[in-house]
Simulated scan of single mutants.
Amino acid sequence: MFAFAVARMRWRFRSAVRTYMIIGMFMPLEVIMIPLAILVRDFHLTNTYGALILSYIAIGLPFSSMIFYGFLIGIPKEIEEAACMDGANIYRLFLKI
């Protein structure tokens, strides 16, 4: 959903958010793991599945968002415009197109 919002919707800080996600891809793993370990300790998630899920999301989110962004940019805008002419709202555009 984030990649769809950045690729297709027009909003104020769209390019700044996209740049922030690209910078997140270039962060070394060591820079992410220390604050993540502190976060896991503070939320009492040590040795739980929640800690594992949180770490996988923190590490993989920037990369997967940019992959989906590149895919959504490649879809022609004419398809989206035709779906809007047929009465599709933003949710249907995301789910069906």
Rank of each mutant, 00 (worst) to 15 (best):
M1K: 12
M1P: 10
M1A: 15
F2T: 12
F2S: 14
F4Q: 04
A7D: 02
R8I: 05
R8G: 00
M9Y: 03
R10T: 12
W11R: 02
W11S: 02
W11Y: 09
W11D: 05
R12C: 06
R12N: 11
R12T: 15
F13Y: 10
F13N: 11
S15F: 13
S15I: 08
A16T: 09
A16R: 10
V17S: 04
R18G: 08
R18K: 12
R18F: 09
T19V: 05
T19P: 00
Y20D: 00
I22C: 10
I23S: 10
M25V: 10
F26L: 13
P28R: 03
L29H: 05
L29V: 11
E30D: 08
E30M: 11
V31T: 13
V31K: 03
I32T: 13
M33P: 00
I34D: 03
I34V: 14
I34M: 09
I34L: 04
P35A: 00
L36R: 01
L36H: 04
L36S: 01
L36I: 09
A37H: 01
A37W: 00
I38E: 04
I38N: 02
L39I: 07
L39V: 06
V40I: 15
R41K: 14
D42E: 06
D42N: 15
F43N: 14
H44G: 05
H44N: 07
L45H: 08
L45W: 15
T46P: 00
T46K: 03
T46I: 12
T48V: 06
T48R: 01
Y49L: 14
Y49A: 12
G50I: 02
A51V: 08
A51H: 01
A51C: 02
L52G: 06
L54Y: 05
S55C: 11
I57L: 13
A58F: 05
A58R: 01
A58E: 01
I59K: 06
G60F: 07
G60A: 10
P62N: 06
P62A: 03
F63T: 10
F63Y: 08
S65H: 05
M66L: 15
M66P: 09
I67Q: 09
F68P: 03
F68Q: 07
F68H: 11
G70F: 04
G70S: 11
L72P: 04
I73K: 09
I73Q: 11
G74F: 02
I75N: 03
E78M: 11
E78K: 14
E80D: 07
E80S: 11
E80A: 11
E81A: 10
E81V: 08
A82G: 08
A82R: 09
A83Q: 13
A83W: 07
M85N: 09
G87L: 04
A88T: 08
A88V: 00
A88H: 12
A88Q: 01
N89Y: 04
N89E: 05
Y91T: 10
R92P: 01
R92V: 02
R92N: 04
R92F: 02
F94E: 08
F94H: 08
F94N: 09
L95H: 06
K96M: 15
I97H: 07
I97S: 00
I97P: 00
